[in-house]
């Protein structure tokens, strides 16, 4: 029963919350969309937290995405032991980078008085969720080794089944505890995502790369300038 709740229902609750709340928030509370940077209050220690954390988490995120989108290709890549080792060690290194950065960020936030007064419960929730994910992820990587290979067969089908709206709960129920924790943690992460500062990921300023530098906004469409 608990398995059905956690692996059959929770993913959809998370999905709906993630989509509905972020769209609603973007539409009706645009002012609340911000990365809430704290660099203005403390900059030196932020460097040693923010940079490793963001670099690591981006790499880990795209690693997970690769496993989900291209499981077959990943298995083929991993057939040569050296390549498997390279992939796993790289992933582990980035995860440790995340752990290092995240610890630094939390330590900084808790020990800097200017930041403590500027920390919301949601900020602490974000830290807690990320720690939980990194620690369970590291546990999987170290104790249930070679996940980049068995993931393709054992987990990718379950994830796909969620998106096909036929959740394969039975497959998930057989998984070791730390895998279950990591997956459930991820669902909670997505459910809480839109209520936190994490929404800044959704508005990452990618279009800036091809936008003209200067921006002028006219109240009304300008009349056509024949000279221009």
């Amino acid at each position: 029963m608990l398995d059905i709740l956690l692996f059959g229902a929770l993913p959809y609750v998370a999905m709906v919350l993630f989509l509905v709340v972020s769209v609603r928030r973007y539409r009706y509370e645009p002012f609340s969309f911000s990365s809430l940077s704290s660099q203005f209050l403390e900059t030196r220690r932020l460097f040693w937290g923010s940079v490793p954390f963001h670099v690591g988490i981006l790499a880990v995120f795209f690693g997970h995405l690769t496993g989900f989108l291209f499981p077959r290709e990943l298995v083929l890549w991993n057939r040569v032991p050296v390549r498997l080792l390279v992939f796993e060690v790289t992933g582990l290194a980035f995860a440790l980078l995340v752990l290092f950065g995240l610890s630094g960020l939390l330590w900084r936030r808790l020990t800097t008085s200017r930041l403590r007064v500027n920390t919301s419960p949601a900020d602490l929730l974000v830290h807690a969720m990320l720690f939980f994910q990194v620690l369970t992820g590291l546990d999987i990587a170290l104790r249930l080794r070679w996940g980049s290979t068995w993931f393709a067969e054992a987990l990718a089908p379950y994830l796909r089944s969620i998106f096909l709206f036929q959740p394969d709960v039975a497959r998930m129920a057989e998984m070791p505890l730390s895998v279950k924790l990591h997956v459930v943690g991820a669902f909670f992460f997505f459910a809480a995502f839109s209520y936190t500062r994490l929404v800044h990921i959704l508005v990452a300023p990618v279009p800036y790369l091809w936008r003209p530098l200067q921006v002028a906004i006219w109240n009304r469409a300008r009349p056509q300038n024949p000279a221009a």
């Binding site: 300023p205 200067q214 906004i217």
Partner: peptide
């Protein structure tokens, strides 16, 4: 990078749309 800052076409006043600012600073 957010396009929150802009120059108002009619009078050239430089303004910042706080609803688009994301604190990239």
């Amino acid at each position: 990078p957010s396009g929150a800052l802009y120059k108002r076409g009619e009078d050239g006043i430089v303004l910042l749309n706080q609803e688009r600012c994301r604190a990239w600073r």
